[in-house]
Design a protein around this nucleic acid. Structure first.
Length: 214
DNA sequence: ATCCCGAGGG
DNA sequence: CCCTCTGGAT
């Protein structure tokens, strides 16, 4: 675990992220709040490219919980068999569709508690929905953010909850809103898990990771 | 701590 | 072959 970076360095890091990408976007395809919830739930331990490939056809057929119930679990399975953990995900998506129709009028709830009560929706998925759909500065910590936070010292922590707190405590307030996507994209394309592309990294001079591993 | 679990990359 | 991918429930 890297040491926590000083505030001035964090300012410079996020200033560079902002300059390089003023409006960072997620890459999970969705057409409404419901399809966002489904897409994020399906993305657990799976690449967003793989999820998009499956949901493109799925959401053309079922972009509401009512239509998902009409499609049924067997129909859903056919669409998501190429995604890891697909059997559990199919069951959860169907249970969630039933709950949304019966208890939320077919709408996606806006509170963390309600979101996390849905089967297959934990803290991370709820944070993504709160951030991307409801505009809340919630900090979802996925595998990328956990790795980047610890390597760089932007947000060190032994587990995802500690990293989430570190982001909330240490990322300058004006950058909280977009920190999620900046860190994700940095982890996906530059600070990759196996052979990080330090030569192409825009915060290379502010990070100790490369010299520690050479 | 363990299970779930396919596709893609190296 | 092994590792990784926007985790959650038990």
């Amino acid at each position: 675990m890297a040491k926590q970076l000083p505030y001035r360095t964090l300012q410079e890091i996020f200033h560079r992220f902002h300059a390089a990408e003023p409006e960072p976007k997620g890459e999970l395809e969705h057409v409404n709040a419901y399809t966002l919830v489904v897409a994020v739930a399906l993305s657990a331990q799976a690449t967003d490219a793989g999820v998009n490939k499956a949901t493109r056809a799925l959401f053309r057929i079922a972009d509401t919980p009512e239509k998902m119930l009409a499609l049924g679990e067997e129909g859903l399975l056919e669409h998501i068999k190429t995604i890891g953990l697909y059997r559990q995900k199919a069951k959860n998506v169907m249970k969630t569709a039933r709950i949304l129709v019966d208890e939320y009028g077919g709408e996606v709830p806006s509170s963390r508690a309600a979101l996390q009560s849905l089967p297959g929706v934990g803290r991370k998925t709820a944070n993504v929905v709160l951030n991307m759909w409801w505009g809340h500065p919630a900090q979802a910590v996925d595998t990328h953010i956990f790795r980047v936070g610890n390597r760089s010292g932007i947000a060190p922590g032994r587990d995802v909850d500690a990293v989430e707190r570190a982001i909330e405590d240490n990322v300058p307030a004006e950058y909280q809103r977009h920190a999620h996507h900046w860190l994700i994209l940095h982890g996906r394309y530059t600070c990759v898990a196996r052979k990080p592309k330090c030569a192409a990294c825009i915060i290379r001079d502010l990070c100790e990771y490369e010299e520690k591993t050479l």
